[in-house]
Amino acid sequence: MIVCATRGGEASQAAQEFAIDLALESGERLVFFYVADTDVLSSTSDTRPHGIAHDLERMGEFILAIAEERARAAGVEDVGWECRLGHMRGELTAFLMESEANKLVLGRPVIAGEGQVFSQGGLGEFAAQVEEETGVKVLLATPPPAEG
């Protein structure tokens, strides 16, 4: 089974296409994976327990549903998705260990930013850590260079 950790941005598009190609080649099941991280208020002083988790989860499911449609349109028949609440690193590792995944596809970030789950430097380190902990092979997809 191929797991593609994805979001909706440019880097994720490249990862999705890479995973779709891989699934078409191998005929393996493809699962898109998203974690709704509710920690969006940590950068503000707002301490109210807003009901944001549900909204973020639905946003994640919508992103995953688009990815699934794209995969089906490309010809992948055995495709699904998994959306979880929590923190990306922990939830992804847990899902890989629970499932029968043997490959994980990650997209390289287009813009290095502190807020991103995987910064340029952190991605390689994370990939190595996941491989060691779960035995799942990690593949990194690089988006095409931006025009201009």
Binding site: T6, R7, G8, G9, E10, A11, S12, A36, D37, D39, V40, L41, S42, S43, T44, D46, L56, M59, I63, P109, I111, G113, G115, Q116
Partner: peptide
């Protein structure tokens, strides 16, 4: 807040 959510959707 908006930037945080957009980032989680893959649009930093």
């Amino acid at each position: 807040v908006a930037a945080g959510i957009a980032d989680r959707a893959g649009f930093p």
